[in-house]
Simulated assay, not measured.
Amino acid sequence: MNGMRNCIEHNGRTMPADPTMSGVTLTVGQVVERIGLPDEVDTVMRDLEANGESLPADGMDAVQGLANPERRVESWQTLKSMLGDDPCGFRMLYWMLYAAGAYTFPEYCRLGIPDNVFDSTMACFTRFVEEHKVSYGDYGFDRDFWTYRQLSTRLFRLSNLEFELACDAKDVPSVAGVPRVINLHIPSDAHLDPDHCDQSIARSRSFFARFFPDWPGVPYMCESWLLSPALEQLLPEHAHILDFQHRFDILETRPDAQDWREWVFQRDPAPIADLPERTSLQRAMKQFLLDGGKVGIGIGRLR
């Protein structure tokens, strides 16, 4: 795995090699190996490849467009329409992994971004198929509406958290008051204790200063159920979630948002009275909701 990169060292700095040389791109199988997809999903990906999974020319153009920040949304929509009925989303997953290896990885190499950032960032695909199994009982991929962000070299996992360079109007909260921001995202497997968060935020600042120096002084924004003011009533005073929340100035709340159902109750569609009570947060939130409370989300700016 460590030998797949074809970059060279120059005066201690990693530089991209000639992209026409072998080894700069990765196959679907190589990407699967790097990110540790579950064996069952790995088998599906390899079966698709062995059975000649293919697309017409305009489909392949859309796959390439997933890695282009200017074309990614249109390309995703085109590919989605072209794939049509896609049980479990595995054909979409295959082509997104293809784009990761054929187009995103070479861009990382061109920019000199370390391989471990590529591997950690693309591991979102592994996380999402595993979350699907937790919610529905089997593996599947239904986050293609999101993952063009990673493929277009605009969203990166840096240690514990994810950070996204956002300048499209739909991705920049209007309350930010600026045309571009760095959106901070919290993966489901993130640790929110202060040390992990400090490390991740510090790493992001040095990462963007080095690889995207035209984004200096851009504010960090976060939109999440973790920033809901209601959590002050549901969690102990020194809970890590509240420690994380207190890093932000909350600029706006949306109390009717239903994000809590996905992230706290794993997308369980049951009526509130029938939601599980496996954790202390589930028990507290369920009672809060039964009593007429609203969780919603908060939108905040990192202090």
Rank of each mutant, 00 (worst) to 15 (best):
N2S: 11
M4W: 12
R5W: 07
C7Y: 02
C7R: 12
I8E: 13
E9I: 13
M15P: 00
M15W: 09
M15Q: 12
P16I: 09
A17S: 14
T20S: 13
V24G: 01
T25Y: 00
V32K: 01
D39C: 03
E40L: 10
E40T: 04
V41K: 01
T43H: 02
V44R: 11
D47Y: 00
L48I: 07
A50I: 06
E53A: 15
E53D: 01
P56E: 12
A57V: 10
A57R: 13
G59P: 09
A62H: 04
Q64R: 15
G65I: 11
G65W: 03
A67R: 03
P69M: 06
V73E: 12
V73C: 01
W76D: 04
Q77C: 07
K80R: 14
S81K: 11
M82N: 00
M82Y: 00
W95A: 06
A99F: 01
A100C: 10
A100D: 03
A102R: 15
T104I: 08
T104L: 11
T104D: 04
P106R: 09
E107G: 01
Y108E: 04
C109N: 12
L111A: 14
G112I: 07
P114L: 08
P114G: 00
V117T: 13
T121I: 12
V129D: 05
E130K: 15
E131H: 06
V134Q: 13
Y136V: 13
R143K: 14
F145S: 09
Q150K: 01
Q150V: 14
R157W: 05
E164Q: 15
P173I: 08
P173W: 04
S174I: 01
A176G: 07
V178K: 06
D189W: 08
A190H: 04
L192T: 08
P194I: 03
H196G: 00
C197M: 12
D198I: 04
I201G: 04
A202S: 14
R203Y: 10
S206N: 05
D214K: 07
G217K: 10
P219E: 07
L226A: 12
L227V: 08
A230Q: 04
L231Y: 06
E232V: 13
L235V: 06
P236V: 11
H240G: 00
I241K: 09
D249V: 14
D249L: 09
I250M: 07
R254P: 00
P255S: 10
A257T: 05
A257K: 13
A257P: 00
V264N: 02
V264G: 02
Q266A: 13
I272C: 13
A273L: 09
R278L: 11
S280E: 15
R283T: 14
A284W: 02
Q287S: 13
F288S: 05
L290F: 03
G296E: 02
G300K: 00
